[in-house]
Simulated scan of single mutants.
Amino acid sequence: MNALHKSVHHSAVFDHPEMGDHEDIVFVQDKATGLKAIIAVHDTTLGPALGGCRVWPYENPADALTDALRLSRGMTYKNSLAGLDLGGGKAVIIADPRKDKSEALMEAFGRHVERLSGTYITAEDVGVSPDDMEAVARQTAHVRGTKATGLGDPSPYTALGVFEGIKASTKFVYGSSDLSGKTVSVQGLGHVGHDVARQLHEAGARLIVSDIHAPAVLRAIDAFGATAVDPAEAHMVEADIFVPCALGAGLNARTVPQIQAKIVAGAANNQLQTPADGEALKKRGILYAPDYAINAGGVISIALATADSGDKLVREKTIAIGETLATIFERAAREGSTPERVADTMAEERLAKAKSA
């Protein structure tokens, strides 16, 4: 019994705390290329399970399994709330993307995706490049975001959705979506964060920016006349809106009491460290835009794009993220709930309706 099987056996797959309603968990390996991967299909009620492939040097297979289960469930909710006819899934490859990844390894992964006969559709995620997806696509048609199937880089659509979500949040809190004169702290200036900052600047907002990568900060200062702060202080500066676009779990017991802004609306995944942090934001009168609702533009572009369709439908569906968030905020206020709980409920309601149809 190899290490993969031993660790997973001892983690008791069916009793795993993240197992929930998962339909399929597939453990794959290819000795010739060194591929060791887990593909988790959470729910196919609305359609095939779409979710990216992540390459990460997990310390053990049990950690990889936990990640695959959590992420695949998250994709079910994201796709449902975004109004896509797709279920949720995720793949994780246990490897160091800088040392272990190869064309042959990604092709082997593609062959395993093909064996699932379209139940799971893969796409780019952490540690995976567009070239890697092209290698996967040589072995299976069940892949998105490639030259043949998409619009290329999904980050402009993620950024567009986040910007629309910020406007919806601003309207709910301040009575108008006008951002001119508003002070906005943008934490994380990667592809998405920089593009969100650009749109905020063009809308007349005053920007405070931060990133661990100094050149990204200098670029934003130069392009947008922004003020720079240390990334560790981005959440606590005096601002109207805090826009986290870096790593997850940034909203936690330490940071929430320090937030000065009235709105938290950004692109980062898994922003709340625990459900209690969402409650803490509500108690402090801070409006939180649920992460998987506001950052769905990327998955919308991956799901709906075809090589010859242009991006009209993708843009329309992405801009509608603002309307979805407005509905979430109004319902949360009416029910005395938190926006993230309402988002979950709305996603679950669509799934329940489809199951009973």
Score class of each variant (00 low, 15 high):
residue 242 F to W: 12
residue 28 V to C: 12
residue 215 P to I: 14
residue 323 E to Y: 01
residue 240 D to V: 06
residue 296 A to I: 03
residue 69 L to P: 08
residue 164 E to K: 12
residue 258 Q to C: 08
residue 161 G to D: 06
residue 8 V to N: 08
residue 339 P to H: 03
residue 223 A to N: 15
residue 40 A to Q: 06
residue 127 G to I: 14
residue 292 Y to E: 04
residue 189 L to E: 10
residue 355 K to E: 15
residue 355 K to M: 13
residue 309 S to F: 05
residue 274 T to A: 10
residue 148 A to H: 04
residue 56 W to Q: 05
residue 336 G to D: 01
residue 297 G to Y: 09
residue 355 K to H: 12
residue 336 G to Y: 02
residue 313 L to A: 13
residue 171 K to N: 12
residue 104 A to F: 02
residue 207 L to H: 12
residue 200 L to A: 07
residue 294 I to N: 06
residue 61 P to M: 06
residue 306 T to S: 13
residue 45 T to A: 14
residue 53 C to H: 00
residue 216 A to P: 00
residue 217 V to I: 15
residue 289 A to T: 03
residue 201 H to W: 10
residue 50 L to E: 03
residue 45 T to N: 13
residue 150 G to Y: 07
residue 273 Q to H: 04
residue 265 A to P: 09
residue 354 A to F: 02
residue 124 E to H: 01
residue 325 L to D: 08
residue 259 I to T: 09
residue 300 I to D: 07
residue 210 S to A: 15
residue 117 S to F: 01
residue 199 Q to N: 12
residue 177 S to P: 13
residue 235 H to F: 14
residue 1 M to D: 04
residue 220 A to M: 04
residue 270 N to G: 01
residue 180 S to D: 02
residue 227 T to W: 06
residue 203 A to D: 08
residue 66 T to Y: 00
residue 329 F to Y: 15
residue 95 A to W: 09
residue 33 T to L: 08
residue 28 V to K: 03
residue 129 S to H: 09
residue 230 D to A: 12
residue 91 A to D: 06
residue 248 G to F: 07
residue 346 M to G: 04
residue 14 F to C: 10
residue 171 K to V: 03
residue 67 D to K: 09
residue 160 L to A: 15
residue 221 I to L: 14
residue 96 D to F: 10
residue 116 L to P: 14
residue 82 A to S: 13
residue 64 A to I: 04
residue 336 G to W: 03
residue 76 T to K: 04
residue 105 L to G: 06
residue 284 R to S: 08
residue 330 E to G: 12
residue 54 R to K: 13
residue 209 V to D: 08
residue 107 E to P: 07
residue 148 A to P: 00
residue 300 I to S: 07
residue 87 G to Y: 06
residue 67 D to Q: 09
residue 262 K to F: 00
residue 178 D to V: 14
residue 260 Q to T: 01
residue 310 G to E: 00
residue 105 L to P: 08
residue 339 P to F: 03
residue 271 Q to F: 01
residue 257 P to N: 09
residue 67 D to R: 12
residue 341 R to V: 06
residue 52 G to N: 10
residue 156 P to M: 07
residue 53 C to P: 00
